Computed example of a mutant assay.
Amino acid sequence: MPDLRVAERCLQVEVARNLLDALLDGGVAVPYSCRAGSCHACLVRCVRGEPLDAKPEALDQASREQGWRLACQCRIVDDLAVEVFDPQRDGRPARIAACDWLSPTVLRLRLAPQQPLRYRAGQHLVLWTESGIARPYSLASLPAEDPWLEFHLDCRLSGAFSDAARHFQPGDAVRLGELRGGALHYDADWQHRPLWLMAAGTGLAPLYGVLREALRQDHQGTIRVLHLAHEAGEHYLADSLGELAASHPQVQVELIAAADLAAALAELRLVSRQTIALLCGHPTSVEAFARRLYLAGLPRNQVFADVFLPHAR
């Protein structure tokens, strides 16, 4: 049986055991969320030995050369020694510039990084509290216009990070993990094509950034924004979206409550097969959006989706 070493701890594990599962079962605190190699919350550094990596392309070459691996995508095939991601050593420092409630359950967090961060609309970051709680969140800010990094935290349900976030104060320190691309972005080649942005809950955060980027680049096609919320009071960016629609005639905004989703989707009609659709939110909602678009005749390669998974405790 291979040995798995973490600091002074030595664990004996079965051959081909998933690295993340072995660490968690051994009492090693490793944050995780998607288990699909997308969120990058479960980064570990291999200091001796090499696991079998099912998704090497998920990390850039520089990160891999430094020994970083995604624990959820690796299996232990021989003796292995790893270091877990240490936000104090490996993360980038930032301070909370502002935090306020956009609705009873959505907290807007604005961070000021110690060093400027290069990113694009639609990307996401792993955020770390000072106590070592981590979770990936999508950026709602726009690098060309906003001096802060903005995130919209869904605090409707209890979760380790969201529970901690309820007590955040301006000036508090946080750490930033790895910046990820994600599936959501704006492409200048889409400028004259219809653009549909379909979000559930705080899945609106990255799409709000993409919307503003499209307008910044003077998007000429129609932009249809659909936001699904549990109830009317949770359309937390209704005013901001309304202001954008009032000043940009190509923008159409639809606010839908969960009880009305089936009827709203049934009424969706494709005006052009050139439409580009970006979807984000809970997997169930994203699946419902995608299914309706498929039935409406939109080619799958014109649909880009990112899902927000439930909180990991």
Rank of each mutant, 00 (worst) to 15 (best):
12 Q>S: 15
12 Q>A: 14
13 V>L: 10
15 V>Y: 14
18 N>A: 12
19 L>F: 02
20 L>E: 10
29 A>H: 12
31 P>R: 07
34 C>A: 07
35 R>Y: 04
39 C>K: 02
40 H>A: 15
42 C>S: 08
43 L>A: 11
44 V>Q: 09
48 R>D: 13
48 R>I: 01
50 E>Y: 13
50 E>P: 02
51 P>T: 04
54 A>W: 12
56 P>H: 06
57 E>I: 03
61 Q>V: 15
62 A>Y: 08
65 E>V: 00
69 R>D: 07
76 I>G: 11
77 V>D: 06
77 V>M: 11
78 D>W: 11
79 D>C: 04
81 A>T: 15
84 V>H: 05
87 P>Q: 08
88 Q>G: 15
96 I>P: 05
97 A>V: 00
101 W>F: 07
104 P>H: 06
104 P>C: 04
106 V>F: 06
112 A>K: 11
113 P>E: 08
115 Q>D: 13
115 Q>H: 11
117 L>M: 15
118 R>Y: 08
120 R>I: 09
126 V>P: 09
127 L>H: 09
129 T>N: 07
134 A>N: 06
137 Y>R: 10
138 S>A: 09
143 P>H: 07
144 A>D: 07
145 E>H: 10
149 L>M: 07
150 E>L: 09
154 D>A: 02
157 L>Q: 12
161 F>H: 08
168 F>I: 04
169 Q>M: 12
169 Q>K: 12
171 G>E: 05
172 D>S: 10
172 D>N: 12
173 A>M: 10
179 L>Q: 11
180 R>A: 14
182 G>C: 03
185 H>K: 11
185 H>I: 02
187 D>W: 02
188 A>S: 11
188 A>Y: 00
194 P>A: 10
196 W>N: 03
198 M>G: 06
199 A>W: 02
201 G>V: 05
201 G>R: 06
202 T>D: 03
203 G>F: 06
205 A>V: 02
207 L>W: 02
208 Y>R: 08
211 L>M: 04
213 E>R: 12
214 A>L: 05
222 T>G: 14
233 G>F: 03
236 Y>G: 07
241 L>I: 03
243 E>F: 08
251 V>H: 09
253 V>R: 03
254 E>M: 13
254 E>P: 04
254 E>R: 14
255 L>W: 01
266 A>C: 13
274 Q>W: 09
275 T>M: 04
275 T>A: 15
280 C>F: 04
281 G>M: 04
283 P>Q: 07
285 S>Y: 03
286 V>Q: 08
291 R>Y: 12
295 L>H: 05
295 L>C: 08
300 R>E: 12
304 F>A: 10
310 P>C: 00
